[in-house]
Computed example of a mutant assay.
Amino acid sequence: MSAAASPVAWAFEPLDVPAFVACEFRVKWAAGDWERGEAMALRRAVFCEEQGVFEGDDLDAIDPQAQTLVALSQMGGMPDQVVGTVRIHQAEPGLWWGSRLAVHAAFRHHGRIGATLIQLAVASAHARGCRVFLAHVQQQNVPLFERLHWQALKEETLHGRPHMLMQADLSHYPPCLDVYTGYVSRSGAGRRPA
């Protein structure tokens, strides 16, 4: 090969390609061990590492009787990652509680994940005979719950932080029986039944 026919050096500018961001999420009752395991890891990340509410672990006596709900990011219609969670339990016949609502920091800007978790939490309890649904809500989250038709009952301090005891208006939460299918939430859009 002669010097005149030397190979051409190609120079490419690096592409500024944004990382893939899921735009669809399935919110449902946790069915598999991997879903429950990732939900527990997310709770630790939010309540222990990020917020410092608990040291090391946030498990308590409610967990063995609680039902875990998860928000799953979807890739190609298949579950990819647990990006949100909440737990519910029946304290006595007709009285249900929700607690440990957590959304992964990287997915909070999607807007509807927490709201859809709350929707399924109350709607699935409503389908199982709930007459009163309560939650202790961190003060910064009270406006979200008020927009979702919850009433503030009284201020309380839990774990050294201000909370509001709140009650859901069940008339805004039609019963949901198909809890393992749950709801689909799209990024930036409202929730729709699956």
Rank of each mutant, 00 (worst) to 15 (best):
T157L: 02
E50L: 08
R108W: 01
V83Q: 02
A71C: 12
D169Y: 04
A152S: 15
R131M: 13
R128F: 02
V179I: 15
V8W: 04
P14S: 04
R100H: 08
E156V: 15
F107M: 15
F20V: 13
C48K: 13
L170Y: 00
P174I: 14
K154I: 02
D178Y: 04
A30I: 06
L69F: 06
W150C: 03
D57W: 06
Q140R: 15
M75W: 10
A71G: 05
L95H: 11
D16H: 13
R112L: 07
G114D: 09
G84L: 05
Q138N: 14
L134H: 14
L153N: 07
T85L: 02
S6W: 11
M78I: 12
P93A: 11
A125N: 04
L59I: 12
V132N: 01
H104F: 01
R128A: 13
V142M: 09
Y180W: 03
Q90G: 01
A66L: 05
A168F: 00
V8G: 00
H163K: 09
S187F: 10
I113T: 08
Q67C: 05
G56Y: 07
L101A: 12
P162D: 09
H149L: 03
T85S: 14
A71E: 02
E55W: 12
G129S: 09
H110L: 13
A66H: 04
A3Y: 09
R112V: 05
V86R: 12
A9K: 14
A152Y: 04
V142R: 13
L120C: 01
E146D: 03
A45S: 14
A194F: 00
P18Y: 04
D63C: 05
L59R: 15
K28A: 14
A11L: 10
S171Q: 12
V137H: 07
S187V: 10
T157A: 02
C23I: 08
V21K: 10
E155W: 07
Q140W: 09
A102Y: 01
P7H: 11
F25I: 08
A121N: 05
D178E: 15
V27Q: 03
Y180L: 11
A4D: 09
G32M: 04
Q119M: 05
A135F: 03
A91H: 05
Q138W: 10
G76M: 12
E146C: 12
Y183K: 11
A5L: 15
Y173E: 10
K154C: 10
D57C: 07
V103Y: 03
Y173D: 02
K28Y: 01
D60G: 09
R128N: 10
G114R: 13
A121D: 02
R161I: 10
F54N: 08
P143S: 07
V103I: 08
Q138Y: 12
I113H: 06
V137E: 02
V142C: 08
S185E: 05
M78S: 12
R26W: 00
V46F: 02
V8C: 02
Q167P: 00
Q167Y: 00
W10S: 06
T68A: 03
A125G: 11
H109P: 00
P175K: 02
D16S: 15
V142H: 08
H149W: 08
A168K: 03
R44H: 09
R43V: 11
N141Q: 11
